[in-house]
């Protein structure tokens, strides 16, 4: 059962990597990377149950949150061309 889920996840990860390589715009690539991250969360959780070590769920939780923060950081950089500077606060376009 868990092996079937792991295989499905690995196949989908290959498809997502293909989209990441081929994706015409930057946002396709970012979408593929974000989607790859959430699939890794599922893979970690399922693998944890596959090897009868449910402690993997903590890793899956941390990975889910870090993946989200990474995506939002890249998007913020796209939108404001700078991560740290507060210059855009007042005259935000």
């Amino acid at each position: 059962m868990f092996v079937a889920a792991t295989l499905a996840l690995l196949v989908t990860m290959i498809l997502t990597l293909f989209r990441a390589l081929v994706g015409p715009t930057i946002f396709d690539r970012l979408l593929a990377v974000n989607s790859f991250g959430t699939k890794t969360v599922l893979l970690i959780a399922v693998y944890g149950f596959l090897t009868k070590r449910p402690e993997f769920l903590d890793i899956a939780l941390v990975y889910a949150l870090i993946n989200y923060i990474g995506t939002i950081a890249v998007l913020k950089f796209f939108e404001y061309d700078d991560l740290g500077s507060g210059a855009y606060q007042e005259d935000d376009f």
């Binding site: 946002f27 970012l30 979408l31 974000n34 959430t38 969360v41 959780a45 769920l57 899956a60 939780l61 889910a64 949150l65 993946n67 989200y68 995506t71 939002i72 998007l75 796209f78 939108e79």
Partner: peptide, 19 residues
């Protein structure tokens, strides 16, 4: 884990579409 996945992934998709 499910709770956080269901919160973060729609938000990320929204942010991506907006950008």
């Amino acid at each position: 884990v499910l709770f956080f996945t269901l919160i973060t992934s729609p938000t990320a998709s929204h942010a991506l579409a907006k950008t």
